[in-house]
């Protein structure tokens, strides 16, 4: 697996798109830190961008990479390598190169700006960790979609739909449910519903660590327990890990049973 990862990674970090992605974050970071001059404000703006953009890029890159390297994958399949190694290698290659673009792109301006002197270092690291998780999750999901769809256009369409669903539609349905059933106690439901969408989960996780969590705890005892203590943080992190492991597991499972 290591070797495949290495080659996929090298292949990707030399691609134009990786540079564009990296440059985008670099530019964003510089603009935010040097024009805004307020690290915690920048963290919130970055959060808004990261939780939407990272999943989108992860999904599209994942699908693109999978379909583009399909023939090469066949070549590898004829080599004495385990199937799971090939797909995991490619998956981690894509995910790690995307993560690297994100971490370096935002990290460099932050370090130059003087992150280590800032008390926002924890918030910022959390932001990057969440970004990395989102990359892992959405790349894995897109690999799953690509594995299940031979048709490139279909796979691409489903991936974009998946992103759209997670980023926007899910919250819309969530909101409608909350409003329709407003007479009932909904705090447990809304926490659970948050856990079922990695984008919502990441957003909550970051908000938890920002001052703004007090705002969320305002609503009731269960929210207060969740957002006001470490419970919420621990549960959210565990759920994110679960969200990462499940699609990777399915990826391996599917890959072992697929004909090429």
């Amino acid at each position: 697996m290591g070797k495949i990862l290495k080659y996929s990674f090298y292949d990707l970090i030399r691609s134009r798109w990786s540079y564009i992605y990296f440059m985008f974050y670099l530019l964003l970071g510089f603009v935010l830190f040097f024009l805004n001059n307020d690290v915690s404000k920048a963290v919130i703006t970055l959060m808004n961008i990261i939780i939407v953009l990272v999943p989108l890029i992860g999904t599209i890159f994942g699908v693109m990479y999978y379909y583009n390297s399909r023939e090469f994958t066949e070549l590898l399949l004829a080599q004495p390598i385990k199937r799971s190694s090939i797909f995991l290698g490619q998956y981690f290659g894509v995910a790690s190169s995307l993560t690297l673009s994100l971490v370096l792109g935002l990290g460099i301006p932050f370090v130059l700006y003087g992150l280590f002197r800032s008390d926002a270092i924890f918030d910022f690291s959390l932001l990057l960790i969440t970004g990395a998780f989102l990359t892992l999750i959405f790349t894995a999901l897109s690999f799953n979609i690509a594995l299940s769809n031979e048709n490139k256009i279909k796979g691409f369409g489903y991936s974009v739909l998946l992103w759209l669903f997670m980023a926007v539609i899910y919250d819309g349905l969530f909101l409608i449910t909350l409003i329709l059933f407003e007479e009932y106690p909904l705090d447990t439901f809304s926490l659970v519903a948050t856990m079922f969408n990695p984008i919502d989960l990441s957003r909550t996780l970051i908000l938890l660590k920002l001052d703004i969590s007090a705002l969320l705890g305002y609503t009731g005892a269960i929210f207060k327990q969740f957002f006001g203590t470490n419970t919420g943080f621990v549960i959210s992190i565990l759920m994110l890990i679960l969200w990462t492991i499940l699609p990777i597991w399915r990826l391996v499972y599917k890959a072992k049973r697929k004909d090429f």
Partner: peptide, 21 residues
Amino acid sequence: NWKYRSQINYLPQIADFPGNI
């Protein structure tokens, strides 16, 4: 099993490779 493939050389029908290598 995958180890037996070290005894096989294979030329696939359509060959495409990662573009940046």
